[in-house]
Design a protein around this nucleic acid. Sequence first.
DNA 1: TCACTCTTCCTAATGTGATTAGACAATTGC
DNA 2: GCAATTGTCTAATCACATTAGGAAGAGTGA
Lengths: 190, 190
Amino acid sequence: MPRAGLDTDAVVAAAARLADADGFESLTLARIAAELGVRSPSLYAHVDGLDDVRRRLGARGAAELAETLSRAVEGRAGFDALHAVAHAYRDYARSHPGSYAASQRSRDLQDDPDADAANRAAVRVALAALRAYGLEGADAVHAVRMLRVALHGFATLETEGGFALALSPDETFEQLIELVDAGLRRRLES
Amino acid sequence: MPRAGLDTDAVVAAAARLADADGFESLTLARIAAELGVRSPSLYAHVDGLDDVRRRLGARGAAELAETLSRAVEGRAGFDALHAVAHAYRDYARSHPGSYAASQRSRDLQDDPDADAANRAAVRVALAALRAYGLEGADAVHAVRMLRVALHGFATLETEGGFALALSPDETFEQLIELVDAGLRRRLES
DNA sequence: TCACTCTTCCTAATGTGATTAGACAATTGC
DNA sequence: GCAATTGTCTAATCACATTAGGAAGAGTGA
């Protein structure tokens, strides 16, 4: 019985590979175990069942996303920062669809301190990216929410095949960024 | 063996009740059968398995949503129409979360003619609602996409518990509608 | 090196749910 | 009333999650 040398991270990393390749919904302990060359019950030495894997995958995805956004916004401000954050968000969701889907399952993640920290970091980055729009207090939070709504809406529709093919999603995305920019700028100018 | 008097619609209606009450993901044939007072295999006389139920539920949800949007926009134009469509969309997603989730599973629905027709109807309604913004050709379609992105993003985040509680989602939603309005109006005025 | 302990992995078993096959009763059409 | 059809059932299989309990690898201290 040679040991496989697994640990929790290896299990979650395998889960991420499978979820990103085949979709979050097709993630099963049986498939993770097969990917790692062990039997399903062996995974219970490292994780606490499928729900735990999903939670850890979501927290990992949220942390990766926050880190990606943080790097994207470094040294930028105003429309430039908004544009960079938006593209970083979309790129993460496209390149890691399973991890992204897991990171957005708020109900599963609501008591996870790692996911919490990552989400707070992401909000901080978004606030920073929007700083030049001069929003204060509650309005700044509403603005972050609206940005998140736009990016999450676009990412899920794109990832899950919601756009009919005829028209370029790239162009829609650029227009979406400009729409958010114009919408946030409105008050600044009025 | 008294007959239960089921048909396809009764099965899908039961599925809608369960999905709207307990979430799309918790929908199982076993639970639908229990709800209807029969054993799971009996459902196969009316539907073609769980995937078929999900598809039918999605098509039904898409049709209900399109109908709701259509009624909301009747007799309205400009911001008034946008506002009405947005609220109708949000209300449908909140009051029928399971049906709404099913209606947005594009992969499952892509070959379903009923869902197709409903989605085309919804696009037609959205184009009508935005007519006053004076968008032509591809830009009109991009605008419909952006509106859908905003509404779908908001609906999923709200429905799945994505908003931290501190700040009113209602206010975020009103600001979102105004942001879309301002973003679409921009070109009109420039 | 050896014994002890902890950990990791295994097999076996249980439970839930989807699905298929085949029996049989209720209904329908004549 | 009778035959055909239809709706429902039981029994069985399969996939997956999960638990229980056993055995072997790996580290530790003598």
